[in-house]
Write a protein that binds this DNA or RNA. Structure first.
Lengths: 121, 121
DNA sequence: TATTGTTATACTCTATAACTATA
DNA sequence: TATAGTTATAGAGTATAACAATA
């Protein structure tokens, strides 16, 4: 988490904004789902999405299924930033992951995926 | 992280304050070390420690080795809260850890400890 | 009526810059 | 001079309560 906080800061992203980008890499959730993933209130999400949208990292779209709901998705710029940050985080964790050999890393990945239902972020 | 955020909030602790308590459970770091663990600036630490100290969760003491340094340590109330939160977090993660059998959990713990140098938080 | 999301408000979190005190 | 920490300030993050729109 310290590494995430530090790398996020280098891109003017709070830990929370970093988590938002992480989630949106492979999903297009509604505001309420996003708040739920993050463990935050929906009113908090409004502000977070406002600021990220103003920066051009993501966008909102009214749901076609439910006129009350709003879907959040990444822009090209957001995806690009998310990939860049992801690469930097991997690199920052190299000293840690490097303590394991290839077999151990594979075992760790498998265990975490089994535990988390292959859900990242 | 979502679980940590949610459980922290139930005790009026931000994710960051939760991490502070987690670190102080088994260490007595200086302000600068604490900031470094968390990936934050030292000026940010001053505010975080101020507020937690005002709540009676932790305290400061001037270092005997270095008159400039300040050591941070938990109070009895802080330790008690940290234990309570720790228990709740474990319980919240039960559905995830429960997907692994005892052998797998042991393997996971061992891999993570090897990777992180047996440092928690 | 219940649910989804936003707004208003107040406090916490955070970084930058300038400062004090000790080394 | 350099390092450890604090303070002042401004902006981001957060929850609560009240609200509008849709179901």
């Amino acid at each position: 988490m310290g590494a995430l906080t530090r790398i996020g800061a280098e891109h003017e992203l709070s830990l929370t904004q970093l988590r938002v980008l992480g989630i949106l890499r492979d999903r297009t959730p509604r505001m309420a789902e996003l708040a739920d993933y993050l463990g935050l209130e929906k009113s908090t999400m409004s502000g977070l999405v406002d600021r990220a949208e103003r920066r051009g990292l993501l966008a909102r779209a009214r749901s076609l299924d439910d006129g009350r709901a709003v879907e959040v998705f990444m822009t090209a710029a957001g995806l690009e930033l998310a990939e860049r940050v992801h690469t930097e985080v991997r690199r920052a964790l190299d000293p840690a992951t490097g303590r394991l050999d290839a077999t151990e890393r594979q075992a760790l990945t498998r265990l975490l995926e089994r535990m988390l239902g292959s859900a990242p972020a």
